[in-house]
Computed example of a mutant assay.
Amino acid sequence: MIEFTDSFSQACVAEACAAFPDLRKRLMVELILPMFARPLDPAGNQAGKPIVKPNSYLQKTVLFVAARDLIDHLPKEIGFCRFTCHCNEHGQPTDVWQRTINGVYYNHGDNQQPNWCVHT
C-alpha cells in the first residue's frame, strides 16, 4: 500500500515518475507487497505452489515531498517511511502501524541526467 502525506506530495511523485522512468521502475519493484505465502525447503528455496492465505502482516509506504526540494517542477528528493501492522487469521489489521524504516529517494544527478538512489 502506498500513502501520501498530502496532495502536493502525490502530484510531485507522479510528475517525477512520469519524467524519470528509472525512478518509476525502482518504486514499482521496491513497493511490491507479498501476496501469497510460498512453501520453502530447508535451504530457503521455493518448494511448491503458492499457498493462498491472508498475510500475517500488512505493509505500507508513506511518501512525502517538501516544496524546498523541487528543482523546476520535479523533486530532488522523495522522503519515505515504511510501516508494518500485524493481522489476524483473516488478514485484518489488529495492531498499530509500526515504523520499520525511513529514508529518501535522492536524485544525485539533475533533471536532464537523473541518478536516483535510496538512502536509509
Rank of each mutant, 00 (worst) to 15 (best):
I78T: 03
C12N: 05
I101N: 05
L58N: 08
A47Q: 05
C81F: 03
F4W: 04
F8M: 00
V13I: 14
Y105H: 10
Q10C: 12
L70W: 03
V104L: 08
A47P: 01
D41R: 11
N102T: 03
P50L: 08
N115Q: 10
Q112K: 15
G79K: 13
E3T: 04
A18R: 13
A18Q: 13
L23N: 03
P75F: 02
P34D: 09
Q46F: 09
A37I: 04
A43M: 15
P34A: 10
Q113C: 09
L40D: 08
D6L: 03
D22Y: 05
V118R: 13
E30W: 01
E15G: 15
N115E: 09
L58Y: 05
C85F: 02
A43D: 15
L63R: 05
G44P: 11
N55R: 13
G91T: 04
D22S: 12
F8P: 03
L70S: 08
K49A: 07
D110V: 04
H90E: 07
V62E: 09
K49V: 02
P42W: 08
C12I: 03
M35T: 05
L63V: 08
P21T: 06
P54R: 06
D41A: 14
L33T: 10
A18L: 14
T100A: 00
H90C: 02
N55H: 08
L40A: 14
C17P: 02
K60V: 01
T84N: 13
H86A: 11
F83G: 01
P39Q: 09
R26K: 10
D41H: 12
Q59H: 06
A37E: 07
R24M: 00
F8V: 00
D69W: 03
I51W: 00
L63G: 01
